[in-house]
Simulated scan of single mutants.
Amino acid sequence: MSEVRTIEDLERAVRALATLFRTDAVVIIGSQSVLLEWPDAPVLMRTSGEIDAYPINWLGWEQDHPGDEASEEINALFGWGSMFHEAHGFYIDGVDANTATLPPGWQDRVIHLAVQLDGATVTAIAPSPEDLVVSKLARLDEKDIAYIQERHRFRPLDIETVADRLAATEIDDATRKSALAFLSSLAEV
């Protein structure tokens, strides 16, 4: 099983969630959202056993299914160790709109990708590259650092835009300070 995700994997995940949740839009967050705007991104950026996603209608679905969480439904049917995982070599990690720390207004800057499903179009939605970087800066673990460095190496980030969006994002001061120091180190390269 390959750990390098492809646009076909992303489309498969979108179709699976669109079918289950009867929705015409699926949100992809996390590292594999890069596939929407850069399907042949460097391997390091596409190396993952999972695609983090949720249907746009997750709240309505949960209201129609009292006691059930959309993310848990995704994990049960498409998550780690599921038949989907075994069949396709990757799994879908069920998340929701509160999983990633994204800057205010990120929904106005999303990237869209049309995915065909039985003659209809489902829209895959992902944060802009700068907004995704902000979410990774808010966590800033080793994996996130490597991801951001690789992105900057091949497609230089607008450091000022990222810093401005980071400043508007609700994170603690220590994290913000570390993230800004890391961003400054990228600007110096």
Rank of each mutant, 00 (worst) to 15 (best):
Glu3Gly: 12
Asp9Cys: 02
Arg12Gln: 10
Arg12Cys: 02
Leu17Trp: 14
Ala18Leu: 08
Leu20Phe: 12
Phe21Pro: 02
Arg22Leu: 05
Thr23Phe: 00
Ala25Tyr: 12
Val26His: 03
Val27Lys: 04
Ile29His: 00
Gly30His: 00
Ser33Asn: 01
Glu37Ser: 15
Asp40Thr: 10
Pro42Asp: 14
Val43Met: 05
Val43Arg: 08
Val43Lys: 07
Val43Pro: 13
Arg46Leu: 02
Ile51Thr: 01
Tyr54His: 08
Ile56Met: 10
Ile56Glu: 11
Asn57Ile: 04
Trp58His: 15
Trp58Leu: 05
Gly60Pro: 02
Gly60Gln: 13
Trp61Tyr: 14
Glu62Thr: 02
Gln63Val: 13
Pro66Gly: 03
Asp68Lys: 15
Ala70Leu: 05
Glu73Pro: 01
Leu77Pro: 03
Gly81Leu: 11
Ser82Ile: 03
Ser82Tyr: 01
Phe84Trp: 06
Gly89Glu: 02
Phe90Cys: 02
Ile92Val: 03
Asp93Ala: 04
Gln107Met: 13
Asp108Pro: 00
Arg109Gly: 04
Ile111His: 08
Leu117Thr: 10
Ala126Ile: 08
Val133Arg: 02
Lys136Val: 04
Glu142Met: 10
Asp144Lys: 01
Asp144Trp: 01
Gln149Phe: 09
Arg151Met: 07
Phe154Ala: 09
Pro156Arg: 03
Leu157Ile: 01
Leu157Asp: 13
Asp158Gly: 04
Asp158Ala: 06
Ile159His: 05
Glu160Gly: 12
Thr161Asn: 13
Ala163Val: 14
Ala168Val: 02
Thr169Leu: 06
Ala174Gly: 05
Ala174Asp: 09
Arg176Met: 10
Leu183Asn: 08
Ser184Tyr: 12
Ser184Val: 07
Leu186Glu: 14
Leu186Lys: 11
Ala187Leu: 05
